[in-house]
């Protein structure tokens, strides 16, 4: 081992010892100090009851499949509407100016409103028009609210991707005689979409969590199910169950998004 390697090994060992020591200290402090708090016994009983955890878990998991279903049909719609809006904002032909204005207005409105508010307005407002049976479903209008909000964000991400494709790529494609439309379809969009995959992964994760907001307008998904159990057992543990269920899905997904993001950064440099 040469001098440099010896030095680096020593540094590494030192860093490891310090990191472990401080972690052990913090964990110990939490384990010892938190139970000393005056309300700990009550909190433990109402949030961390193992008995209630086990009893509520099966049905909570069941309810979570509804979250997944709503997510699965919303995500492709978000991608599709987001792409349309991004394209609408990128057109240059004067005849299509109204389309650009529409795109800009759409993005301004739905990025500017809290998701919950959009869900309330659309989820309660539109069925209130007195629509016949299947068309007043909160599933439909809840999905619409989510799709509108999230496609506004996705459209902006896509548009930044479209603008990040260098002008020289367009020039090269145009110089071969390709039409503006073909340049967008075969040259710009494929490169743009690839570049914004990691950013859109984060949007997908956020969408997956926000499906829970539909509980406010009716569907019994995991958060609403937790609320029902809370009232039934007079205990908050079901909320902790919901949190655990969400985390088992979102943590791997966020790690994967980070991995994609890092990979892309390394490729570019």
């Amino acid at each position: 081992m040469n001098r440099r390697a010896q030095y680096e090994a020593r540094q590494k060992r030192r860093a490891l010892i310090i990191a472990s020591a401080s972690t052990v200290f913090i964990v110990l402090a939490l384990v010892v100090l938190v139970p000393l708090a005056p309300g700990w016994v009550a909190v433990q009983k109402s949030f961390f009851s193992w008995d209630i955890f086990v009893r509520s878990l099966p049905k909570m998991l069941d309810a979570f499949t509804l979250n997944i279903a709503i997510f699965l049909w919303s995500a492709p719609l978000v991608a599709f509407v987001g792409l349309l809006i991004a394209l609408a904002r990128s057109v240059t032909a004067p005849a299509l100016f109204p389309l650009r204005v529409f795109g800009a207005g759409f993005v301004d409105i739905f990025r500017g409103l809290p998701v919950v508010l959009v869900i309330y307005l659309i989820g309660f407002g539109i069925p209130g028009l007195g629509l016949p049976r299947p068309w007043n479903s909160p599933y439909i209008w809840g999905t619409v609210a989510l799709v509108l909000t999230y496609s506004a964000y996705v459209a902006e991400i896509l548009r930044s991707g479209i603008e990040s494709v260098h002008q020289s790529q367009r020039s090269a494609a145009l110089s071969l005689g390709l039409s503006e439309r073909d340049v967008m379809r075969y040259i710009v969009l494929p490169q743009a979409i690839r570049r914004v995959v990691p950013a859109n992964m984060n949007m997908l994760i956020a969408l997956q969590k926000d499906v829970a907001l539909l509980s406010f307008i009716g569907p019994v998904e995991v958060l609403r199910q937790a609320g029902i159990y809370k009232s039934l057992f007079a205990n908050f543990t079901p909320y902790v169950v919901a949190a655990v269920i969400f985390l088992t899905f979102t943590i791997p997904a966020t790690r994967y998004a980070d991995y994609l993001m890092n990979k892309q950064r390394n490729e570019r440099s």
Binding site: S171, L176, G177, P190
Partner: peptide, 25 residues
């Protein structure tokens, strides 16, 4: 026209770069 900075389409292999315009145009 051929440019100083090559401007190949990075998401296609060399052959696809060459085929795209004759196919589409």
């Amino acid at each position: 026209i051929v440019f100083q900075s090559f401007n190949l389409f990075p998401h296609m292999n060399a052959l696809e770069n060459v085929l795209l315009a004759p196919r589409r145009v």
